[in-house]
Simulated scan of single mutants.
Amino acid sequence: MTDFRNAKLLVTGASGQLGRLAIEELLARGATRIVAGTRYPDNLADLAARGVEIRRLDFADSSTLAGGFAGIERALIISTDAIGARAEQQVAAIDAAEAAGVRHIVYTSAPAASPNPGSAVRNDHFATELRLYRGNTDWTILRNNIYAEIILMGAASALQSGQLFDATSGKGRSYVTRADAARAAAGALLTSTGKLVLDVTGPAPVTQEEIAGLLSRVSGKPVTRIGLAPADLRAGMIAAGLPDAMADVMVSFDVDAAQGCHAVVTDAVAHLSGREPQTIDSFLDANRAALAG
């Protein structure tokens, strides 16, 4: 296996959760020339003290792109949270990376990235992937499944009401923990060559019926899964105070799951990180304290 531990490696979005975890993995695996690109350089003083080079890199500020990618050999481009605007920003970042001579780009995408009028998330990722396909550098596209942490976001209301609402039509998701996705991303940055698309998944698809059962077991509170039509789920989310744009994103995730897009299982995590992905049972057990309240 090719080893790029001594190459100059850039991680964008390094102040974010996935970026920090990826840098920790790179350090643990012996990478010697790590660059952390971030909108908030002052937040990464601890990494600078450990030998990581810190650069201001903001995809929304084109003046930071050339300097951010200068001298970089391999770059992990972590998709931003600017849904609807990020495709243009990420394409500009890829343009800058290619102009700077970056030899390999690792990009964190999403399942079934494709044109879809009902999903800004899929459209953004598709546009970014298309730019990589049309480019002149090598790349690895990591289609990260839905993060297991999203379960915790909805757990409080489910435990309070005793009901878990979804529009997945009973289909499963191969949830992957953010830590496993970060380890896989670091592994791709350290080892991948050529052009490759990988689905990054947990070990097995899990239905919302099963999630409700797991929440009940871990918390000791009864939770029942309630299946809804997408429009009804969206209306309920908005009535509960979720912003319209976020409700649209969450519903689009469920629609994608209902179409089977989230049920794919691969060995990408194990292959790229050397560790098996964490199961949802284990993940919820590890986060029992977060469910206790």
Rank of each mutant, 00 (worst) to 15 (best):
L272A: 01
S282F: 15
Y147L: 01
T266N: 03
D124T: 13
G220I: 14
I151K: 06
R288K: 09
V52S: 04
A127H: 00
I94C: 10
V35F: 10
N6P: 00
P230K: 02
Q208T: 15
F4T: 13
D244I: 15
T224N: 07
P115M: 03
R20L: 14
S282R: 14
A48H: 08
T279C: 06
G194A: 08
S174P: 10
V249H: 02
G71L: 00
H262C: 15
A257H: 02
E24D: 12
M1E: 05
T64P: 05
E24L: 13
A167M: 09
I150Y: 07
T108I: 13
R50Q: 10
F4D: 06
R33V: 11
L228D: 00
V255R: 08
G227W: 10
A70W: 11
S174Q: 08
A70R: 12
A100L: 13
M153Y: 06
I141Y: 00
T201A: 05
T2P: 06
L228A: 06
K195Y: 00
K221I: 14
G220E: 00
M153E: 06
Y40E: 09
A235L: 11
L228N: 07
L190G: 09
G194L: 05
L130Y: 01
Q17M: 14
L159Q: 07
G101R: 08
A14E: 01
V11W: 03
L132D: 02
L164M: 12
D232P: 04
V218C: 00
V91A: 07
G68P: 01
A247R: 01
L27Y: 05
G68I: 12
E24V: 09
L242Y: 06
R178G: 12
Q259P: 15
V249E: 00
S79G: 12
D61C: 12
S63P: 02
K171L: 15
E149Y: 11
T266A: 04
I83C: 09
D3L: 15
A245G: 03
T12H: 04
A113P: 08
A66F: 09
P117C: 02
V269G: 03
R56C: 06
L196W: 03
A290F: 02
A120N: 00
V206F: 03
A93R: 05
A92P: 07
Y107R: 08
F69L: 15
G37A: 06
R288D: 01
I83A: 10
P117A: 04
L130S: 05
R143H: 05
P222L: 04
G68R: 05
H262V: 15
T80R: 08
L196R: 14
A156I: 14
L272C: 00
I151P: 00
F126Y: 10
A240K: 06
L159M: 09
I34T: 01
A155F: 09
G194D: 01
A212K: 10
V249T: 09
D267G: 09
N6D: 04
